[in-house]
Amino acid sequence: MGVTDREAFIAPDKNPARHVYVCVENTLHVRNHLAVRNTLRQGSDLRNRYEQVKRQLASDTEIVMSRCVAGTSEVLQDVLAASDLTAEEKQQIYDLNNPP
């Protein structure tokens, strides 16, 4: 019995809660994620700061996704500033994450 496209994205259970983010290959979204990953791998100061923020947010059992995103925004801006993305890409990401 095959799995439908829709069923492929349904978690088999609800614990732990998950959020899936799907990106199209070679887009700015993918370059953004890879730049964050690569920068955190290279810089222990940023990595430790990011870890501290994420752990603090994770300790709140009632947290919602929007608050988690807002809570990591400042450190992620610093991570992106240290990344190898172009100035134009960094500005595009900033604009996407900070709508008017």
Score class of each variant (00 low, 15 high):
residue 1 M to G: 08
residue 4 T to F: 09
residue 7 E to P: 00
residue 7 E to L: 04
residue 7 E to A: 12
residue 8 A to L: 06
residue 12 P to I: 07
residue 12 P to W: 10
residue 12 P to Y: 13
residue 13 D to S: 14
residue 14 K to F: 08
residue 14 K to R: 11
residue 15 N to W: 03
residue 16 P to D: 01
residue 17 A to C: 08
residue 18 R to G: 02
residue 19 H to S: 07
residue 21 Y to N: 11
residue 23 C to P: 00
residue 23 C to W: 02
residue 25 E to W: 12
residue 26 N to P: 00
residue 27 T to R: 08
residue 29 H to G: 03
residue 30 V to G: 00
residue 31 R to M: 02
residue 31 R to Q: 02
residue 32 N to I: 00
residue 34 L to N: 03
residue 35 A to N: 04
residue 35 A to S: 11
residue 35 A to F: 10
residue 37 R to G: 09
residue 37 R to V: 11
residue 38 N to K: 14
residue 40 L to W: 03
residue 41 R to E: 08
residue 41 R to H: 14
residue 43 G to Q: 15
residue 44 S to Q: 13
residue 44 S to P: 14
residue 45 D to L: 11
residue 46 L to F: 03
residue 46 L to P: 09
residue 49 R to K: 12
residue 49 R to E: 15
residue 52 Q to H: 04
residue 52 Q to L: 02
residue 52 Q to S: 10
residue 53 V to A: 14
residue 53 V to N: 10
residue 54 K to I: 07
residue 54 K to N: 11
residue 54 K to F: 13
residue 55 R to Y: 15
residue 57 L to W: 08
residue 62 E to K: 13
residue 62 E to C: 02
residue 62 E to F: 08
residue 63 I to M: 13
residue 63 I to C: 00
residue 63 I to T: 01
residue 64 V to L: 13
residue 64 V to C: 09
residue 67 R to P: 00
residue 67 R to E: 10
residue 68 C to W: 15
residue 70 A to K: 15
residue 70 A to I: 05
residue 71 G to A: 09
residue 71 G to R: 10
residue 73 S to Q: 13
residue 74 E to C: 07
residue 74 E to R: 14
residue 75 V to I: 15
residue 77 Q to H: 02
residue 77 Q to F: 04
residue 77 Q to G: 06
residue 77 Q to L: 11
residue 78 D to W: 07
residue 79 V to H: 01
residue 79 V to F: 01
residue 80 L to W: 07
residue 81 A to L: 14
residue 81 A to G: 06
residue 82 A to T: 07
residue 85 L to D: 00
residue 85 L to F: 01
residue 87 A to P: 03
residue 88 E to Q: 12
residue 88 E to C: 01
residue 88 E to M: 01
residue 89 E to P: 00
residue 90 K to Y: 01
residue 90 K to M: 04
residue 91 Q to H: 11
residue 91 Q to N: 06
residue 95 D to W: 09
residue 95 D to R: 15
residue 96 L to I: 09
residue 98 N to I: 02
